[in-house]
Amino acid sequence: MATTGTSFIKHEVAHHFDNAEQEFESAKLGMWAFMAQEILFFSALFVAYAIFRYLYPEAFLEASSLLSWKMGAFNTAVLITSSFTMVMAVNSAQTSQKKKTFNFLLVTILLAALFLVVKYFEYMSKFHHGIFPPNYFNAMAVFEQVPIFFGIYFVITGLHALHILIGIGLIIWIMRRTARGEFHADYFTPVELVGLYWHFVDLVWIFLFPLLYLVG
């Protein structure tokens, strides 16, 4: 099974499970429950966005035009690509290709870092123009409610960026375990679960991109 001649560590099924299959399915179900919670967690911010966009459509139009849609579109492509490299990493782990798994995870991390770098420059250019969260907003705007948009923008993209940071930490963790040879066709649960988490981060951004950058 090992393609590169490297050794793998045999996985012991925890004693409270009947077999590896049940252990895997239980872990995955737990991850899906966590993701259902994450949807509810982010929904509060999407509702806040919907309320203020409904009340002040012109202000949202103006505020959105202050964002660079090119950077947003670029970051969308970056995240989608990282989701693809992530499924490829999971697939490599499922087929016991240790080196391939490691490399795909590495590319995923690099793409995640690229996303954060673009986000950093975006934030900095906003700060440079006095676009801060509402209480510190100090930019020229026609509509009084423009700061509300940026309040939502900074909280929701900030929380999303925090998810990316946590994701990078998780991927580093499974990279180390991959290098040790813990993942192979008989055991790849952590890779699969971190993969699910990573796709969720991508999922949130798929909605954020048109809602924040392409109002109009």
Binding site: E25, K28, L29, W32, A33, M35, A36, Q37, I39, L40, S43, F46, S83, F84, M86, V87, G195, L196, H199, F200, D202, L203, I206
Partner: peptide, 26 residues
């Protein structure tokens, strides 16, 4: 993303209940 990347297409019923339950709440 959900169906293919996250493999929901091949998941069992209870995962769907969890996910759709969450979406219905939203």
């Amino acid at each position: 993303v959900l169906l293919i990347f996250m493999g929901l297409r091949w998941e069992k019923g209870f995962t769907w209940v969890l996910l759709l339950g969450s979406v219905v709440c939203v």
